[in-house]
Design a binder for these strands. Structure first.
Length: 494
RNA sequence: GCCCCCAUCGUCUAGAGGCCCAGGACGCAACCCUUUCAAGGUUAAGACCGGAGUUCGAAUCUCCGUGGGGGCACCA
């Protein structure tokens, strides 16, 4: 394991909602930085003005913070390698584009988008690979200078080698060899004076002294370009690590808008901003996404601290991974069970409030042991424990009638229960259960029938936390009142 | 079409030539526990894409197929 402190970065573009893929790369970046005592950096890649959406940058920062992936340097926290927003680094890129031109590694291109489009069409018609035809590569520096002076709009293209091969080294995949004739003279500086990703990322990674570049495998296609740019500058390369992509749950193709919508219908999402609302925890989301692309042999339930402990870029996997939301449920539920009661209580409170329930903090703390292992997502607390915070419950009359009994018999059971329970000074678990069990014994009825009716009367629902523990928390008066109400409902049914 | 990448249970993965008639996790099934629902415990079923090599020996190395994924923009 390398002991050199790693500087890693997550470099999202603010063009839409922050999704799972970004979160997972950020996690690995974070783990590597923390593991080695280095820094984790947020850099906003906003060079495409047309695609930038307002609020997206904030969503990224909120998302990272919600996950607990605090960055050491970034647009809103500063740092000694800023600015951390690429639109604020315009001159840096222009300067570097000029260096490349002066070194003969790049050239101004005056071709219009229309012309380029036409060339591309013709190439495709001839069944050739679409590529830049090299018109401006042949221009003499003098002529190029003259046309620039003339005020002609131009881009800057990187001059790719045309013969031989480019060998790029990826940490997970080894050497990736590409024939240079397959490569293309890509635009690195646009007519608007802003760089494309290819220039911006390379320059920034160097200037910000990034040691490890973790990114999606969708960048493999332009990987040779990137290493050629680094080499043209004469810089040292960072360690390149191309991660696997996420596939949709079926494993057929990557997540699409349509797929994201389908997930939402099932109560899942690939967007970080939705996660909290859906009741997922940062711990669960992190643990889950960490394991898609990271091979851990055993003991796969991990806190972030444990992940830092065990993380290694060598154990990352290069193959595509199908998203499995059931596993998210599992990790989420597991981490909920691992939380301390006060911690869980504070996280649950907003979900009760969201449902318009008034939360008594003492009661909330008391119900934690009762509902904790029943929760898959945090918002499940409402269905399992909402009745604790209501004055009255409204059971469905038909649910008050146990299987095999009629309304009259059920009402009789409730009356008898009332008699037993009202005789108690306190509605404690210890006091209430023995006489009720004795009653079940003597009645000749099934325990599920009697406790079931009582459960519906007390909690208003057929499925609930354990009955007597619940009754203890609800309290004597309220319990007796609820039983009365239920008897009333049954009476009304004739 | 061209280029690149990937390939172990349904899914996520362990496995870096003999420790593997392949281990863990999710899910699934059964049983135990049990006042409902969970949780927990025990058990079961379930995979090395195919074919050639290399080797005494291959899930592990090589090649060829096949399948899957990604890319081929003045987007990232």
């Amino acid at each position: 394991m390398s002991t050199i402190p790693a500087r890693t970065r997550i470099a999202p573009s603010p063009t839409g909602h922050m999704h799972l893929g970004t979160a997972r790369v950020a996690l690995y970046d974070y783990l590597l930085a923390k593991k080695t005592g280095g820094q984790f950096i947020l850099r906003i890649e906003d060079t495409d003005l047309k695609r930038t959406v307002p609020g997206a940058e904030q969503e990224i920062m909120d998302g990272l913070r919600w996950l607990g992936l605090e960055y050491d340097e970034g647009p809103d926290v500063g740092g000694s390698y800023g600015p951390y927003r690429q639109t604020e680094r315009r001159e840096i890129y222009q300067h570097h584009a000029k260096i490349l031109i002066d070194k003969g590694h790049a050239y101004p291109c005056f071709c219009t988008p229309e012309h380029l489009d036409k060339v591309r069409q013709e190439q495709m018609k001839r069944k050739e690979n679409p590529h830049y035809d090299g018109t401006c590569r042949k221009l003499s520096p003098d002529e190029a200078a003259r046309r620039i002076a003339n005020g002609e709009a131009y881009t800057v293209r990187f001059k790719m080698p045309q013969e031989g091969v480019t060998v790029a080294h990826d940490h997970l995949r080894g050497d990736i060899t590409t024939e240079n004739k397959q490569l293309n003279d890509q635009v690195i500086l646009k007519t608007d004076g802003l760089p494309t990703y290819h220039l911006a990322a390379i320059v920034d990674d160097h200037e910000m002294q990034i040691t490890h570049v973790l990114r999606g495998s969708e960048w493999l296609g332009t990987f040779p370009l990137h290493v050629n740019i680094v080499r043209a500058f004469g810089w040292d390369e960072p360690q390149w690590i191309h991660l696997s992509v996420f596939l949709k749950p079926s494993g057929k193709g990557k997540m699409s808008k349509r797929e994201a919508a389908a997930a939402m219908k099932d109560g899942y999402s690939i967007f970080i901003k939705d996660m909290q609302e859906l009741g997922f925890t940062p711990e669960g989301v992190l643990n889950w996404s960490a394991l898609m692309g990271w091979g851990v042999a055993e003991d796969d339930v991990m806190t972030v601290a444990q992940m830092i402990e065990r993380f290694s870029i060598d154990s990352l996997t290069p193959s595509p991974a199908a998203i499995n939301f059931q596993k998210l449920d599992h990790f989420n539920a597991t981490h909920i069970r691992l939380m301390s009661a006060p911690d869980l209580a504070s996280r649950l409170k907003p979900y009760f409030i969201r449902e318009g329930l008034g939360v008594d903090d003492d009661v909330l703390l008391k119900i934690i042991p009762l509902i904790r292992e029943r929760l898959t997502t945090l918002d499940d607390c409402v269905s399992f424990g909402g009745f604790f915070f209501k004055d009255e419950v409204s059971p469905l009359p038909e649910e008050l009638i146990a299987k095999g009994l009629d309304a009259k018999q059920s009402a009789e059971i409730l009356r008898k229960s009332y008699e037993i329970l009202s005789a108690l000074a306190e509605m404690s678990h210890a006091a209430a259960e023995p006489p009720m069990r004795a009653y079940v014994e003597s009645s000749g009825l099934n325990i599920n029938q009697i406790f079931g009716i009582l459960r519906v009367a007390i909690t208003g629902q057929k499925v609930s936390p354990p009955l007597f523990e619940s009754m203890e928390i609800i309290g004597r008066e309220k319990c007796l009142q609820r039983i009365q109400n239920a008897i009333g409902m049954l009476g009304g049914m004739g």
